[in-house]
């Protein structure tokens, strides 16, 4: 075996051990060492050179990036997640014939879908979804994310929140917590339009706060235009389209002149 590969394997073993101990500082150090080492292999994406040891190298590189993704979930670093995921993605899409598929593939793809959902990037969510083969949609990890998106779009937020109990993989819990925040903002936005006012107790329940204190700080920070009076929360409604009192004369003159000019051209 190539000595460099041995070194990579050793560091990778230490990374795995550190990850189990939840020693994130060491993990990050080891990971950056590994990433530098990986750049030396021509068999990895994007070049995909057919070296004699290509299969082993591809496999270990994929393993490393998978761990990197999981590490970024644990350290709650969404930017790192995105970066690592994009480095991992070519392994899933372009190495089909070269190495056997990874057992981690579906959970990680599901995680990525969940991340897009949390960040409310629905267009990218659907773009990613189109890439998945039909049988992948049956996988519990991916199905979970797809169903969440559906409930989210429908507005059935209770279902989104109760899905936390049925997570298919323990790394999903972290994103579900973040999703709860996104859901709260959505609910707040909806309530604003749907209700004239709500009693503080109801508002607390709908927005999933445990104390009045949390509710009032949330309102102060995110929705200063709401008002709390006599135990009720009053929402300031956006002004609706009022009956037009004034004739927008300047605009009308401009439009009529442009019609005249165009007609002149035709006749």
């Amino acid at each position: 075996m190539d000595p460099q590969l041995v070194e990579v394997t050793q560091i990778f073993a230490r990374l795995k051990a550190a990850l189990l101990r939840n020693d994130f500082g060491t993990c990050n150090n080891l990971l950056s060492q590994l990433k530098v080492l990986l750049t030396k292999y021509p068999s990895l994406p994007p070049t995909f050179q057919q070296t004699p040891t290509a299969v082993e190298e591809l496999q270990i590189a994929r393993d490393i990036y998978e761990h990197a993704v999981l590490l970024s979930v644990k350290t709650e670093d969404q930017d790192a997640f995105e970066r690592d995921f994009f480095q991992l993605k070519p392994f899933y899409t372009d190495t089909c014939g070269l190495i056997p598929p990874s057992p981690q593939e579906c959970p990680i793809l599901g995680l990525n879908l969940l991340r897009l959902l949390v960040q409310n990037r629905i267009a990218e969510f659907h773009t990613e979804l189109e890439l998945l083969p039909p049988n992948a949609l049956e996988n519990p990890c991916i199905k979970h994310a797809v169903e969440l998106e559906q409930s989210f779009m429908e507005g059935a937020y209770n279902r989104v929140l109760s899905a936390r109990k049925t997570v298919p993989h323990d790394t999903y819990v972290h994103f579900m917590d973040l999703l709860a925040k996104t859901v709260r903002d959505e609910i707040a936005g909806c309530s604003e339009k749907a209700y004239d006012s709500l009693s503080v107790a109801d508002a607390k329940k709908i927005l999933m706060f445990s104390s009045d204190q949390e509710l009032s700080t949330y309102i102060e920070e995110d929705h200063p235009e709401w008002e709390i009076k006599n135990g009720f929360v009053f929402f300031q409604k956006a002004k609706e389209s009022q009956p037009c009192k004034e004739i927008p004369s300047l605009q009308l003159i401009n439009q009529t002149l442009s019609y005249a000019r165009e007609l002149e051209r035709i006749v």
Partner: peptide, 12 residues
């Protein structure tokens, strides 16, 4: 509760 939130979203 589902109906309520669905209606709320439709309004928004």
């Amino acid at each position: 509760a589902d109906a309520e939130s669905i209606v709320a979203k439709a309004i928004r």
